[in-house]
Write a protein that binds this DNA or RNA. Structure first.
Lengths: 258, 258
DNA sequence: GTTGCCTATTGGCTAGGCCACCAGACCAAG
DNA sequence: CTTGGTCTGGTGGCCTAGCCAATAGGCAAC
């Protein structure tokens, strides 16, 4: 039964219409998702466990298969279940780690130092992989980006485009879909540090030199050297005004520029 | 009508059955999501713009309303659109700001080797950071996980929980929200390789030894050693049956140890 | 001008049905 | 006994058809 809304208080009518609290539009599939999560929690189900069959589940919940299917799509999108054709819906995560991913995506509260760490991890690996897997086309793209940087630096610009093109070319040369995806995710966060860094006097030239070293290592198919050069580069880049006074003291390099 | 798969090239047939390319099961709603995104991109739609009516859209795409509804649910879950009852589907984000979750939905094609690369990149960095930033509590958690592994291995189990607890403890010890988030994202993908690896005879003991080395480096606050040990560990783990014959020869790894 | 209703349009959801996929049982040929 | 096939029951994937409910906008009554 149940079906339908079973909803909730609409406009209370109470006061002088301050504003009907943006009345919630309870979608059935959302409620189903909730119930399924409850079910998982109550029964202590974990990764690998299977949900009941769609038909059965739909009947038990008193909803149509179509609506249940929507709920499953929602759960699949957030990586909670994996449904395969003749097999059924399989849990991928446990009950308590429900929506961490979701909330993580929603809250864009990442601090800069953390972003730098992530960038360092990803780009270092990307450089190494690029050195191993690059094709001639990849190399051409990298060197084209290098030339662009060169022109821009010579013209006294900050070479933002060149810098970005370079890193994108390297990412592509690594031929790793997953890493590329992760890079894209932190991409916009990186942008801030990039701009800041390249605005520092003398930095563009430094940066260009570093990029040349990286490119050379990739050209020579030397993964270790590429990784080292990239790590070195990121170190310098991360030493920007934005961070001064944040991690000021403590650890980190102290090595660096050229 | 058309409808249905309209699928794609399955096995290229090339070599001697290196492994049937992890055959993908293209869900219709995923394709629809893709087409809708294309539509948005092509027509340069942005936040506030409205999509055509469901019935119209479904007919135009040659799919049923039910399937289209699933696609809309998927888009809604990732915060791309907002659909209200008598009104229609409203775009919330622009064309190029689809976020990672989306691409994750669209391409369910993450190949194992790629996942390994990503894991290698992230965990290596995590280990290094953990060595730098660990607190006593972090260390205690790591060693507790180690003990759990030990008990499980001695009992002849696969120590899946111990393994996972260990890596989670290290991740926490690194104190990097962004890296943790990225790890979480590829977490479920990693699970496959983890299970596979720990099911190999003798592997749990090996794994335990490797973890001990990593833990020791973190205890001694030696980032370089921690990174090296972790990279080494991931190397071993990635050498699972799932991958044999895929990257068989060639490379593997090769970032900057030491 | 304001109010209130009416109706076309749009989503939400259900019902029922067909097809494809998977796994396990079963049987026959080697 | 082993191997290879077919059969069968169960499960998802999708579709068609249709009713219900919310919304917006026009129009009539006030």
């Amino acid at each position: 039964m149940t079906a339908h809304t079973g909803a909730d208080a609409p406009a209370p009518s109470a006061a002088g219409v301050p504003v009907p609290p943006r009345l919630s539009r309870p979608r059935l599939y959302e409620q189903i998702v909730q119930q399924l999560l409850d079910h998982v929690r109550v029964h202590g189900l974990g990764p690998g466990d299977r949900l009941p069959a769609e038909r059965e589940l739909a009947q038990a919940l008193g909803v149509s298969r179509a609506s249940l299917a929507q709920a499953l799509v929602a759960l699949e999108v957030v990586g909670m279940v994996h449904v395969r054709h003749g097999e059924g819906a399989t849990l991928l995560r446990g009950a308590d780690e429900e929506d961490v991913l979701l909330s993580a995506v929603r809250t864009h509260q990442d601090s800069l130092p953390d972003v730098i760490d992530a960038r360092s991890a990803l780009e270092t690996k990307l450089a190494a992989l690029a050195a191993e897997r690059r094709t001639e086309e990849d190399l051409a793209a990298i060197e084209a980006a290098l030339e662009l940087m060169e022109r821009q630096v010579r013209a006294g610009e900050r070479s933002l485009e060149g810098d970005q093109a370079f890193h994108e070319a390297v990412t592509r040369a690594a031929h790793s879909a997953v890493l590329a995806r992760l890079m894209k995710e932190i991409g916009e966060l990186i942008l801030e540090t990039r701009i800041e860094s390249l605005s520092t006097p003398g930095r563009p030239q430094d940066s260009l030199d570093k990029h040349r070293v990286i490119a050379a290592a990739i050209r020579d198919r030397d993964p270790a050297a590429a990784a080292r050069a990239m790590a070195d580069h990121i170190d310098v880049v991360s030493d920007v005004a934005l961070l001064r006074g944040r991690r000021a003291d403590e650890d980190h390099d102290g090595e660096g520029r050229t």
